[in-house]
């Protein structure tokens, strides 16, 4: 009995010491219970749907069989990663991922900046708005629709073949999506077509921040239209350009998979298959879960390295970073 009460007092003492930090905390929780009710369900949601799948990375180090329990899976170490880097197909996939990303990045960047500058030069406000609305349109279409449009334009009886024939640039019609070598170009062009208008939004916002007095002053000094673009508009966008460039380099390995998957076919696979499509092909079609996950992990890790590097670079340049 005595021992019991001793224990009791000891534990209540321990509790009392903790209470200094805990009690006000609990009190605060109680007074903010509405805010907690608003967020806790979604914190659980994000932990389950976004964080829990990372646990599945373990299967890259196993010979995963869906029917077996976790404890019964056979551990194989780095076998799948070693297989990937000895697999000629995966090396092609790596090459495609990098090439597609770099081409899309450069082309997407240059075209968006160029278009933003030209849209900004339009004097008629109504015309400007209409052009902007039209240029946003492809962004709102799904990649399925976009792929249908692209493949229709590029088909044997599509407009591109007809124009090239009429201009005598080709002698016979070309099945563009059937030639692997054209794929990176087609992909980049489709991507520009779909997103260039949308990507101007941020640059136009940057241009709108430029002090109009600068243009007036330059005009009085006799600067031509092109000189004003060269020396006022472009430098005025510099900060946004640098931030977006760094951000895009951070996301460079995320070239997406929809366009590649939907425009890809047996004939251009050597050039169209990137890491994401490889994961789909191995994981979903061939049920090789472990190998597909290994490829996915490889991509995520590379992507994280790029992001962290890009971000610390941005911070060093005094651009504030992304997070």
């Amino acid at each position: 009995m005595q021992a019991h009460s001793k224990l009791n007092s000891a534990s209540s003492e321990a509790l009392h010491q903790e209470e200094k930090g805990l009690k006000p905390f609990l009190k605060k929780c109680k007074s903010q219970r509405a805010l907690l009710l608003m967020t806790i369900p979604f914190v659980i949601w994000v932990l389950v749907f976004r964080y829990l799948p990372v646990w599945g990375w373990t299967m890259a180090f196993q010979d995963f069989k869906p029917a077996r329990a976790f404890a019964e899976q056979e551990w194989v170490g780095l076998k799948h990663f070693i297989f990937l880097f000895q697999d000629e197909r995966f090396l092609l996939v790596l090459r495609n991922t990098l090439a597609q990303s770099v081409i899309n990045l450069i082309l997407g960047f240059v075209t968006a900046i160029g278009l933003a500058v030209l849209i900004n030069e339009l004097a008629n406000m109504k015309f400007k708005r209409v052009i902007q609305t039209i240029s946003y349109l492809p962004h709102f279409l799904s990649w399925v629709v976009a792929a249908a449009l692209v493949s229709s334009v590029l088909s044997m009886d599509g407009i591109i073949n007809e124009i090239l024939l009429a201009l005598n640039l080709i002698d016979s019609k070309i099945l563009f999506l059937g030639v692997g070598e054209y794929f990176w170009g087609i992909l980049a062009a489709s991507d520009v077509w779909k997103n260039v208008g949308w990507n101007t939004i941020i640059y136009l916002a940057a241009i709108a921040m430029i002090d109009q007095e600068q243009y007036e002053a330059a005009k009085i000094d006799g600067a031509s239209r092109l000189q004003r673009i060269r020396y006022i508009t472009i430098p005025g966008m510099k900060q946004v350009i640098v931030i977006l460039l760094i951000m895009n380099i951070g996301y460079i390995i995320e070239a997406g998979f929809e366009a590649q998957y939907l425009l890809g076919n047996g004939q251009n696979m050597e050039y169209s298959e990137n890491i994401d499509v490889f994961v789909i092909n191995y994981g979903i079609s061939m049920f090789n879960f472990s190998l597909a996950t290994a490829a996915g992990i490889f991509k995520t890790v590379i992507s994280l390295i790029f992001l962290i590097a890009a971000n610390s670079f941005a911070k060093k340049m005094g651009q504030g970073g992304l997070y």
Binding site: V46, P53, A292, L304, L307
Partner: peptide, 30 residues
């Protein structure tokens, strides 16, 4: 809300999801 005790931690938990994901197969199995 300035005063919310978990303002920072919950923000970070959500923002982190922009930088990684479990990937196709683990998500499928989930």
């Amino acid at each position: 809300q300035e005063k919310f005790i978990f303002k920072k931690s919950i923000t970070i938990i959500f923002i982190m999801t922009m930088y990684f994901n479990g990937g196709l197969i683990p998500t499928y199995l989930l």
